[in-house]
Simulated assay, not measured.
Amino acid sequence: MSTFFGMVDVFPRREIVLSSPSRTLVGPGAVCSLSENIWRFPHIVANLCTDNTIRNRAALFRKVGLNNYPLTPSEASRASRTPNMSWRTFSKVFGGTLMAERPCCRRVEGYGNFLCTNNMAQPFAPRFPGEPGVILYFQDADTVETTNEMFHLLVSPSAARADCSLLRYSGIYTRVPLRHTALGADEWLSLSSACRNKWILRLQDGAAPHLRAIHARASLRNTLGHDPSPADVRRWMRKYKEVKTGRWLLNTAFKSGKEKLRFEVVKCVGYDVHLATIIRNEMVVDRV
């Protein structure tokens, strides 16, 4: 029996197979198969911006064989009885950076690969245990999804996009191999203003090298009048270690398509009952 984190059998009892439609229309866009395991989802973000209801999301993913993970009756029962976990309790139990999307936890052995989303920055993330979804991220970011075959996903359960204080366990997820994972300028503009502002704020607050490189390119384009070379970017980053580009220039870079968010499609491959039990027990203690 295959196990993940040495706890439970997490692989689906029925293999989730990507079907092979040659060209299937999904709303205003299309889903195209490029090879056996590599997929292209043109305009998927624009489609979801147009209609992000549960029904349309299910139809969009079902067209390419991405169905909800079939929880067993015992898993479904456990999922329904697993309470939302506060960020404070999550950090106390698992460690990692408070309120970080990828908190890099190391406190509990075997439980370090977490992706924790909120509705404002990740409006297309899975909404309930087992549902597929779309995750946005910055270009060149070193993410837990790209460095690990599988990871635990926790999502914001609140309908209020500004409320990011709680997390709900959704299951064990993996990335679907894709090509063409960059958002075009039209897709960036199709995101809500609140979502775009959240990503610009993350960019302004971040200090990671891949974020600093975006600042450098935006500033240099404004100064030079053309795209800078990699050498230009490196020189700018060495010279202006603490300088950050203004919000207007960053917005312009994404609106023009010069800078692009990336996206990934994720699917559920299992549900860790042991982790759900940890969450339930800790929240009981937290309420005492």
Rank of each mutant, 00 (worst) to 15 (best):
W199S: 07
H152C: 10
E242A: 09
P157Q: 03
V285M: 14
G206P: 10
S80V: 14
N251Y: 09
S190D: 06
V26P: 05
A162Q: 07
G65T: 15
D9E: 14
G246W: 02
T252N: 11
P230L: 00
R161A: 04
D286P: 15
V108P: 07
K92V: 07
Y69P: 12
M120H: 05
K258S: 15
A125P: 02
F11L: 11
V288S: 10
L71F: 12
G270V: 10
L201Q: 10
F254R: 02
A59D: 15
G246Y: 02
A100V: 01
A100N: 01
W188N: 10
A218Q: 06
R14P: 15
V108H: 09
M99Y: 03
G133S: 05
A79R: 07
S74C: 14
A141E: 15
T147R: 02
A125S: 08
E75Q: 14
N222G: 13
S229F: 06
Y111N: 04
P230N: 02
R179V: 15
R247F: 08
H152P: 11
E15R: 08
M99K: 04
R81C: 15
W87M: 00
V284C: 12
M283K: 13
R102Q: 04
T143D: 01
V134I: 08
I135A: 00
E282V: 13
T146R: 09
T24Y: 08
L154G: 07
A160W: 07
W248M: 11
C195M: 02
M85R: 01
A121F: 00
Y271G: 11
F4G: 02
L183H: 11
P70H: 08
D232A: 09
N37S: 13
L211T: 11
P12D: 07
S165F: 03
D205T: 12
L153T: 01
N52D: 10
D186E: 15
G110E: 08
D286S: 12
R179C: 15
A79G: 12
N56I: 06
S77R: 13
C116T: 00
I278H: 05
F254C: 03
F114Q: 00
E131L: 09
F124S: 09
A182S: 14
F124H: 06
T3E: 11
G112E: 01
